[in-house]
């Protein structure tokens, strides 16, 4: 599904990843853990196309993605739920979800998909017309996840989905992720909450200072 091989990414002169390899098989749920500043977010951003790698390869479903712009990667079925959620705070919940289905592929199935997301997160339906910025932390994470699902991903990348959330909400988010996993979605999850993620994931990688360990 996803193969990352000896990936090197740097910010200017500062190398953030030196030779990281990660594999996610179809339908697999893989955890990526490691201390702050290890380069976990950098890895996910590089997979999503926001950062250009200096060396190494990223392949999705057998074909390279590392030379493609982010929109092409989304179109092919990779979605990233970024650290800090990055919602469009001044737009409504509904608009955020509609934007999640921007790609041609997702446009076609927008209606049905919206219904599906509202089924998974009834709270989002209740708040459909509210501004995303006015939601609680838990609701915002649901919206970030729902927005990513609107793009019909086959591989979901999640960057610290439990960050700053109450334990009860973390639990419900993780049970939804487990449900998606059961339905066949491939997931790569970065988490500080190691216990929660390790009970769900099939395998885990530990990243320390930009290198696998």
């Amino acid at each position: 599904m996803l193969e990352v091989e000896r990936l090197e990414v740097s910010y200017g002169a500062l190398a953030a990843l030196h030779g990281v390899s990660v594999t996610v098989r179809p339908g697999e749920m893989v955890a990526l853990v490691g201390p702050n500043g290890a380069g976990k977010s950098t890895l996910l951003k590089a997979i999503a196309g926001l950062l250009a790698p200096r060396a190494g390869a990223i392949r999705f479903e057998g074909k390279p993605v590392s030379a493609e712009p982010p929109q092409q990667i989304v179109e092919r079925g990779v979605a990233l739920v970024p650290e800090g959620r990055r919602l469009f705070a001044r737009m409504t919940v509904r608009d955020n979800l509609e934007l999640g289905a921007f790609t041609k592929r997702a446009q076609k199935e927008r209606r049905a998909r919206l219904e599906r997301v509202y089924n998974i997160f009834p709270r989002l339906f209740e708040r459909e017309r509210q501004l995303a910025g006015s939601l609680s932390g838990g609701e915002q994470q649901m919206l970030a996840l729902g927005r990513a699902l609107m793009g019909l991903p086959r591989l979901l990348l999640l960057d610290e989905p439990s960050l700053g959330l109450a334990p009860r909400i973390v639990e419900s988010i993780f049970s939804i992720l487990a449900e998606l996993h059961r339905e066949g979605m491939s997931l790569l999850i970065v988490e500080q909450n190691i216990q929660a993620v390790l009970t769900l994931a099939e395998r885990a990688y530990i990243l320390a200072r930009g290198a696998p360990s």
Partner: peptide
């Protein structure tokens, strides 16, 4: 609002 997040939407 956020061009990076926009790029992630495709």
């Amino acid at each position: 609002e956020d061009w990076e997040a926009a790029a992630l939407m495709g």
